[in-house]
């Protein structure tokens, strides 16, 4: 018999398809997991309204639960309260930084701040510049470190 806590862990361990180094648990988008007999209902929230990874995340959750023996899996989406980058856990931020992706600044619930310092995830220098506000995905911007000259992705504060 699989306990609810184990199901929660299973769901939380699903990897984000675009930020492969973090799980959806660390990303903070899992809002609820309800288990009834062999039926599981998972509730998630989108990062961005148009995030194209949502369908992939949904099917990855279903696959993980089917593999664990649950015949019926439903994945619902809720919008409120709106996700912000503050929902990314500390371990999640650390893993992003270790993978060379600058984690977002804290305080995403405030209006967009334009003067945030983003530290280079490689050398730690605060002397970095924005190359493009929109990077390889909607949630990231493209930056360059002026100290070590390496370009890097940064998760935008939302």
């Amino acid at each position: 018999m699989v306990t609810t806590a184990q199901v929660v862990d299973l769901v939380a361990a699903v990897r984000d398809p675009e930020l492969r180094v973090v799980t959806i648990g660390e990303l903070g988008i899992v809002r609820d997991v309800a288990v009834r007999d062999d039926r599981v209902t998972v509730t998630i929230t989108p990062t961005y309204s148009g995030c194209p990874a949502m369908d992939m995340i949904r099917s990855d959750i279903e696959a993980a639960l089917h593999a664990a023996g649950f015949a019926e899996v439903a994945v619902d989406t809720v919008l409120s309260p709106a996700w912000s980058t503050d929902w990314i856990s500390e371990p999640g931020r650390r893993k992003l930084a270790e993978a060379g992706i600058a984690p977002p600044a804290a305080g995403g619930h405030r209006p967009v701040s334009l003067s945030l310092t983003v530290r280079c995830p490689r050398c730690g220098s605060p002397d970095t510049e924005e190359l493009s506000r929109f990077g390889s995905t909607a949630c990231k911007s493209l930056r360059r470190c002026r100290a070590c000259l390496e370009p890097f992705d940064a998760v935008k504060t939302l």
């Binding site: 309204s49 148009g50 390889s136 909607a138």
Partner: peptide, 20 residues
Amino acid sequence: MEEDIALANIALDQLGAARL
């Protein structure tokens, strides 16, 4: 190229809001 990606991302945001 950066602008190409930016405009596609903004379009995606708009499309996401439209779908909801």
